[in-house]
Simulated scan of single mutants.
Amino acid sequence: MVLYTPLSETDIFPADQNAYDSTVITAYKQTTVKARKLENGNYQIVQLLSTDPFDYLHPDYQPGIQFNA
């Protein structure tokens, strides 16, 4: 079987399913992000979910930024 997709192999076949269990989709500074809940109670941005191209240039929405919900 051949699977043609722009996604990486790890997105289709995740090695660690528990890593995806702790992700939530939430609002952060008026923009929607996918974030991972950390052990200390904060969230870490995994992915920006926005249709505004200028949001992707904003440094506050970079993956890896931690915030309180």
Rank of each mutant, 00 (worst) to 15 (best):
T10F: 04
A35G: 12
A27W: 03
F67N: 03
A27H: 08
D60V: 10
D21E: 13
P63H: 03
P6I: 03
L7Q: 11
K34L: 07
K34E: 15
E9H: 09
A35Q: 04
S8H: 06
T51I: 06
T5C: 02
N68I: 07
T10Y: 04
I25E: 11
L38Q: 13
L38F: 06
Q47Y: 06
Q30A: 13
A27C: 07
E9M: 08
D21L: 15
L7F: 13
E9S: 14
A69R: 12
T32D: 00
E39S: 15
P6C: 01
L49C: 06
S22R: 15
Y61S: 02
T10W: 04
K37C: 10
F54H: 13
T32V: 14
I12E: 07
V24H: 09
Q62G: 03
I25S: 09
Q30W: 00
R36E: 14
A69K: 08
Y43F: 14
P59S: 08
Q47D: 15
Q47R: 11
T26W: 00
D55H: 13
F13D: 09
Q66N: 10
D11Y: 06
G41L: 06
T23V: 15
L7Y: 13
V24K: 12
D60H: 08
T32P: 00
N42A: 11
I12W: 03
S22H: 08
I25C: 06
G41R: 04
D52V: 10
L57S: 12
G41Y: 05
H58A: 08
F13H: 10
T31C: 02
K34I: 13
T51M: 01
N42E: 13
T31H: 03
K37W: 02
K37G: 08
L49R: 01
F13L: 12
V24M: 05
M1D: 13
V33D: 00
Y20F: 14
P14S: 03
Y28T: 00
D55T: 05
Q47N: 13
P53G: 02
E9P: 06
A15M: 05
Q44A: 12
N68V: 14
G41C: 07
I12G: 00
S22K: 11
Q62L: 11
D16V: 14
Q62I: 10
S50Q: 01
P6S: 09
T51R: 02
Y56C: 03
N68Q: 14
K34P: 04
N42D: 12
R36S: 15
R36V: 13
D60L: 07
Y20I: 11
P6A: 04
Y20R: 07
Q47V: 11
P59M: 06
D11E: 15
A69Y: 05
N18E: 14
Q17N: 06
D11H: 09
L3F: 11
F67E: 01
L7K: 12
S50N: 02
D11S: 07
K29A: 05
V46A: 09
N68C: 07
G41F: 05
P63N: 05
N40H: 06
N18M: 08
Y56T: 05
Q62H: 09
Y20K: 10
L49N: 00
A27Q: 09
H58D: 15
Y56G: 00
F67K: 02
A35D: 10
Y43T: 07
I12V: 15
V33A: 00
P6N: 12
K34S: 09
S22Y: 04
P63C: 01
S8L: 08
E9G: 11
T26Y: 00
D55C: 03
D11V: 11
V24F: 07
V24Y: 07
T10N: 08
Y20T: 15
T32N: 01
T51A: 07
Q47E: 15
